[in-house]
């Protein structure tokens, strides 16, 4: 088992990252500005070679949340079988997080999905388009202010008539 906290502290002595633990999950909160630096270090030095999961969360209305959007990177190591979750936060009006596609090719579609569902832009992503929803869709459905029920974009979609087709 690698002591991630200690090695981060010794490599970046002037940075303080909040570390928390819940059940067997170890989490480190990293600001967006340091994200790529920390992830590169984890990948290259500490052998967290696989990005198991990347997901977005909208913390609007969440108890005692200060930032609106969260992006989580669940890294696993195929050598030590250790996992670490790196959490970063971003905010309106223009939520931006640097893309990790240069580090892990597997992040490509995962980031596109987060963009599709939350509208979080990934700077440096090679192909940031909607992935699950049609390109003419305008809002971001997994945001908490998007209604669960009721009339939405689907009703505004252009319908092909017989004459047009």
């Amino acid at each position: 088992m690698i002591d991630i906290e200690a090695s981060l502290k010794s490599t970046f002595p002037d940075k303080v990252y909040a570390k928390s633990e819940f059940r067997d999950n170890q989490r480190i909160d990293v600001p967006v500005s340091d994200l790529i630096m920390v992830l590169t270090y984890l990948k290259n030095q500490l052998k967290f070679d696989m990005l198991a999961e990347l997901c977005g969360i909208d913390y609007l209305q969440y108890p005692s949340a200060r930032d609106r959007y969260g992006v989580n990177y669940v890294l696993s190591s195929t050598e030590t079988n250790q996992r670490i979750i790196i959490r970063t936060k971003t905010n309106d009006p223009d939520p931006v997080v640097p893309s990790v596609v240069p580090l892990w090719e597997g992040a490509n579609w995962l980031e596109r999905e987060v963009f599709d569902m939350f509208g979080i832009r990934f700077e440096g992503h090679p192909d940031l388009r909607r992935i699950l929803l049609p390109p003419e869709f305008v809002s971001y459905p997994l945001r908490k202010d998007y209604p669960l029920r009721g009339k939405g974009e689907r009703h505004n979609f252009h319908q092909l008539t017989r004459a047009e087709s």
Binding site: F22, I57, Q61
Partner: peptide, 20 residues
């Protein structure tokens, strides 16, 4: 919030659950 995964037939099937 918590991430947990199991080995589903196709690979790692994980859920990231946030609870309020």
């Amino acid at each position: 919030e918590l991430y947990a995964a199991t080995e589903a037939p196709n690979g790692e099937l994980g859920f990231y659950v946030v609870s309020n």
